[in-house]
Amino acid sequence: MILYTPLSASEIFPVEEEKFQHRHCVSYQGKMIYVEDNQDGTYQVLQLLSSDPQDFLNDGFSPGTILK
């Protein structure tokens, strides 16, 4: 199906509020990270919010890591 419209996709297919609520920006070991709540007591790292390139070499902050 192709929709020819000037509207943005989110206006046609509204996103459920619930999806926003699972994403948090938290401070972990002194660094700000953006995480997704897995709903089982664990969090998954989505993005590391740091300007220090060395932080990105830290395994604990790499995207996909599960935090308990």
Binding site: S51, L57, S62, P63, G64, T65
Partner: peptide
């Protein structure tokens, strides 16, 4: 942990290096 990462986002380890005075945004 490597397996976990590959399963989660298809990403593997990145090489280590000394500190830098230049930051990246």
């Amino acid at each position: 942990s490597l397996v976990q990462k590959i399963q989660q986002l298809g990403q593997t380890n990145i090489p280590q290096s000394p500190d830098s005075n230049v930051h990246v945004l």
